[in-house]
């Protein structure tokens, strides 16, 4: 048996079977991330609440889902739900597990972002008569979101690869499909290289996207710096035509 087969490598690289596995990985990541973000936001807000009826469940939720392995959570969901007569597809179970798990981590990231918004701004908004909801959406969230984009990006990157854990409940994503082919044709190195290449492609694409999002979030701040800089340069020459 030869050590490395280029033919095998390129066959797998062009294989629609593997490609569709990668697509499933992307879909699971996108859906779990978006739902996880919403659930994480809710959890973070609840955890910060002064009312224990709100903060305590949130605290428990984060403690539990960060304290147990995703693998166990997935198996429990996959085998437990049918016993409650809830029958869901493997994909649905995978996405539920990933969402619940990710939300617990995102809640802590979001909470840190919200904590970083100066309390003086919140008090000022309150004194100006803004409702708690208006304060959240207009003052706290926008400023917190800008701060947490880098750690959120990190989470997306991590989640892309964490999706492979769903293979334990036979989810046919990129990793599972690679393993299925390995059992058939024993080209471990070639197959896993292809899988690694796909993951690299996905994370690189995300890196690019994240930079665009950061660019967008910094827009109001950047515009100010630019005009300030332009003014600083131009002022001496154009003192007479002060706007």
């Amino acid at each position: 048996m030869q050590i490395w087969s280029w033919h095998g490598f390129f066959t797998y690289l062009g294989s629609p079977y593997i490609f569709r596995g990668a697509l499933i990985t992307v879909i699971m990541t996108v859906v779990s991330m978006m739902m996880g973000f919403l659930l994480g936001l809710l959890t973070a807000v609840m955890k910060r609440s002064q009312h224990r009826v709100l903060s305590w469940p949130a605290r428990f939720y984060v403690w539990f889902f960060r304290g147990t392995p995703l693998l166990v959570q997935l198996v429990v969901i996959y085998t437990g739900l049918p016993k409650l007569d809830i029958r869901l597809s493997v994909l649905a179970c995978s996405i539920i597990g990933l969402t619940l798990n990710e939300a617990a981590y995102l809640a802590e990231i979001i909470r840190a972002g919200l904590n970083a918004v100066p309390t003086g701004q919140i008090a000022a908004a309150r004194a100006l008569g803004l409702s708690e909801r208006q304060i959240a959406w207009r003052i706290a969230f926008p400023q917190a979101f800008r701060l947490i984009i880098p750690p959120l990006g990190n989470s997306v990157n991590g989640l892309l690869k964490t999706t492979s854990v769903t293979s334990v409940i036979s989810m046919e994503e990129l990793m599972q499909r690679s393993q299925i082919l390995v059992q058939d044709q024993f080209m471990v190195l070639e197959l896993f290289s292809v899988a690694a290449l796909y993951y690299l492609l996905m994370t690189t694409a995300w890196d690019f996207l994240q930079r665009r999002i950061e660019h967008y979030a910094e827009r109001p701040y950047r515009r100010q710096q630019k005009t300030a800089a332009v003014e600083a340069i131009e002022l001496p020459a154009t003192t007479q035509d002060a706007r």
């Binding site: 100066p118 003086g120 701004q121 008090a123 908004a125 100006l128 109001p220 701040y221 100010q224």
Partner: peptide, 18 residues
């Protein structure tokens, strides 16, 4: 709050707004 307004020592200006 309908009749009063306050200026804090630390101002509390909204950092993301002009």
């Amino acid at each position: 709050r309908e009749q009063a307004a306050i200026v804090f020592q630390q101002y509390g200006l909204f950092g993301h707004m002009s």
